[in-house]
Design a protein around this nucleic acid. Structure first.
Lengths: 191, 191
DNA sequence: GCTAACTCGTATATTCCCGTACGAGCTAAA
DNA sequence: TTTAGCTCGTACGGGAATATACGAGTTAGC
């Protein structure tokens, strides 16, 4: 029941290219126009409208596609063993995703209902929170700050680093290393 | 030579009210319209255009005014003594400013040249960097990460916390305390 | 009280974008 | 080869926002 009426192969290809272009452009500029996205996808504007009647439909599709990719990537990360090492691995894998999804998320928040965004975006945060919880119970992560704040703080550090890279403000070689080192400090119990 | 032709008192008052309203609205929504700003300031739209011909002029004036206020506040902070305590004081004072300027900064970045934004925004970052440097030389702050990254990381943590408060996502009592604790961890030399 | 400065409404031009309508031409799939 | 699905151009309408033009009324400051 996935396709009501069967879809032709060329339509599938068009949709894939449109979504890909939308991810790319919306990832850089939340206000990217339908025009530009269609042009970047190499299809006419009307073709795009044929598949995504409203702008919100396209934004949602792009976000869902990105997050599905993210889920696939993150679910492959080995979260067993020392929570600190597991966190490093998780952050390393999150790195590439964050660079794209931060701006895309902003686009989504302008167009989609808050509930819908939360629903789509909840999984990654939950995974991180779960890991932090385990680290806390094993005594290697701090417990003196609320878990919600810790998750948010990690998120903002990651997002900030992604922004630094995107704008090229920081001429730094190993930005991922800085993030992992910083997050580790952030989560380590204070002396 | 500040005023080419002398300005009347009522004009000064109008300008002050407009800038104040612009700071308020742009601080909440980077896309606030001229209309709404004029309405919030209690002046006609045409009066506003009389003083700020282009939208960019108004945004720049609002940003400059906010940062001037910030400079005044931050320059009053006692940065002597233990760098860690000085940092706490600096963050506490930065807290209120950041909540406003984060969204306003976003508005500015859409309208003003990157160089202009940087120029207006450089002072607070420099003050923080100076303090971190002193802490490093006294051995209480870490030196294993580049100073530029540390400054940026503090900035993003602060900004993130401000955003959490604005959206009310985190039902947390003492957000400032969380920020200072987190930043302290971030800057403490790792064991 | 005179004058320049200021306020501010209405109207209008412009620009940009979304979304719809119509229709001609192409192509995959049976 | 037929046909349903797909592509895509052009054109149009609507909305929102910026910015300009004109002009009448009001007020501060000398």
């Amino acid at each position: 029941m996935t396709t009501r009426t069967r879809r032709r192969a060329d339509a599938e290809r068009s949709i894939a290219r449109i979504v890909s272009a939308a991810r790319e452009l919306l990832g850089r500029d939340p206000a990217a126009t339908i025009d530009k996205i269609a042009a970047a996808a190499g299809v006419g504007r009307m073709t795009l409208y044929g598949h995504f009647p409203k702008r919100a439909d396209l934004v949602e599709a792009a976000l869902a596609d990105t997050l599905a990719d993210g889920e696939r990537t993150l679910s492959a990360v080995d979260l067993t063993g020392d929570p600190r090492d597991a966190l490093d691995r998780l952050l390393a894998s999150s790195w590439g995703l964050m660079a794209e999804s931060s701006s895309l998320l902003a686009a989504a928040q302008e167009v989609l209902s808050p509930g819908r965004v939360r629903e789509l975006h909840g999984a990654p945060a939950a995974r991180l929170e779960e890991l932090i919880r385990r680290g806390q119970s094993e005594g290697v992560f701090r417990t003196d700050l609320p878990i919600g704040w810790l998750v948010a703080a990690v998120h903002y550090l990651l997002k900030g680093a992604a922004e630094e890279e995107r704008t090229g403000r920081l001429d730094v070689d190993g930005l991922p290393r800085l993030v992992t080192a910083s997050v580790r400090s952030l989560l380590t119990p204070p002396a």
